[in-house]
Simulated scan of single mutants.
Amino acid sequence: MRKFLPWIIVIGVILILFVWIKGINNNAVKLNENIGESWGNVETAYQRRSDLIPNLVNTVKGVANFEKSTLVEVTQARANATKVTVDPSNITPEQFNQFQQAQSGVSSALGRLLVTVEKYPELKANQSFLKLQDELASTENQILTARTRFNEAVKPYNNHVKTFPNNLFAGMFGFKEKAYFVADKGASAAPKVNF
């Protein structure tokens, strides 16, 4: 029996290491899948907003004849935002920043559209416009919630792949740190509303 004891110990250590490394990998895979799901929810919220924009623009166009440049900006911002795609399994900070900038352009253009609309009392009272405006506000809240949940999914993943000794094996299996959503530059300043 003593003759086999070193082999039993070596086999036991190998099995323990295998189970431990398998656990690191499997946990990283599960956390990465959570991030993928959360990212899908973010994109769904952005798609909802993108789908609402043509309806809003057509409603505004139908009721008021005002600056075409504002409508063109909204349409172009929407088109630019739909061009940028991000692979949730391999989100790089550069891709992430490009995606955020495109979505910020949509938000900015929509803001200018809604400010311009304030000049037209008959449009502000139009039920279709009010419903679309409510839908856009609801969509923006959904985007905020989806972004928050995405960040909540990224945190445990990043903790898992960055802590020692997991970081030694996570890199070997191709798991890298993921980027968080961050506020746009200047977003910390309170917006000024003028009537």
Results as ranks from 00 to 15, higher is better:
Glu140Ala: 02
Asn65Asp: 12
Arg2Asn: 13
Ser38His: 08
Tyr180Asn: 07
Gln142Val: 10
Ser38Gln: 09
Pro88Phe: 09
Ile8Leu: 15
Ala179Arg: 02
Ile16Thr: 03
Arg49Pro: 10
Phe175Ile: 03
Ala190Ser: 13
Phe96Cys: 04
Ala187Cys: 02
Gln103Glu: 14
Asn25Cys: 00
Ile11Gln: 01
Met172Ile: 14
Val29Lys: 04
Phe18His: 02
Ile9Met: 08
Ala64Trp: 01
Met172Thr: 11
Lys185Gln: 08
Asn80Ala: 03
Pro121His: 00
Glu122Gln: 14
Lys68Glu: 14
Lys176Ala: 15
Leu56Asp: 00
Asp134Phe: 08
Val84Gln: 11
Met172Tyr: 12
Asp87Lys: 12
Glu33Asn: 10
Tyr46Trp: 13
Ala153Gln: 03
Arg112Val: 02
Lys22Leu: 15
Pro121Ala: 11
Ala190His: 10
Leu15Glu: 00
Gly62Phe: 06
Ala77Ile: 05
Ile11Pro: 08
Leu132Cys: 05
Ala170Thr: 03
Gly174Arg: 05
Asn158Ala: 04
Ser108Gly: 10
Phe4Gly: 09
Leu130Gln: 15
Ile14Gln: 03
Val182Gly: 07
Gly105Pro: 08
Phe99Arg: 06
Leu123Lys: 03
Ala183Trp: 03
Tyr46Arg: 13
Ile14Tyr: 05
Phe4Asp: 04
Leu15His: 03
Ala183Gln: 14
Lys83Gly: 14
Asn158Ser: 04
Pro121Trp: 04
Asn97Ser: 14
Ile8Asp: 10
Gln98Glu: 15
Phe173Asp: 12
Asn126Val: 08
Ala187Met: 09
Ala109Asn: 02
Thr82Lys: 13
Val63Phe: 05
Pro191Phe: 00
Leu136Gly: 09
Ile24Arg: 02
Met1Gln: 06
Ala146Gly: 07
Asn159Tyr: 08
Glu94Gly: 10
Leu31Tyr: 00
Leu31Ala: 09
Tyr120Pro: 01
Asn141Gly: 12
Lys124Met: 01
Arg147Thr: 01
Tyr157Asn: 00
Asn167Lys: 06
Val117Lys: 00
Leu15Pro: 01
Gly186Gln: 07
Ala102Phe: 02
Val13Ala: 13
Ile11Gly: 13
Val161Asn: 02
Gln47Lys: 14
Ala146Cys: 05
Lys162Asp: 15
Lys68Gly: 14
Asp134Asn: 13
Glu122His: 10
Gly174Phe: 07
Met172Ser: 09
Asn194Ala: 13
Lys68Ser: 13
Lys3Phe: 10
Asn141Asp: 10
Ile143Lys: 03
Thr92Ala: 12
Lys61Asn: 11
Phe175Asp: 03
Ala102Asp: 06
Leu168Gln: 14
Asn26Leu: 06
Ala153Thr: 04
Leu132Pro: 05
Ala45Trp: 07
Ala137Phe: 02
Gly186Tyr: 04
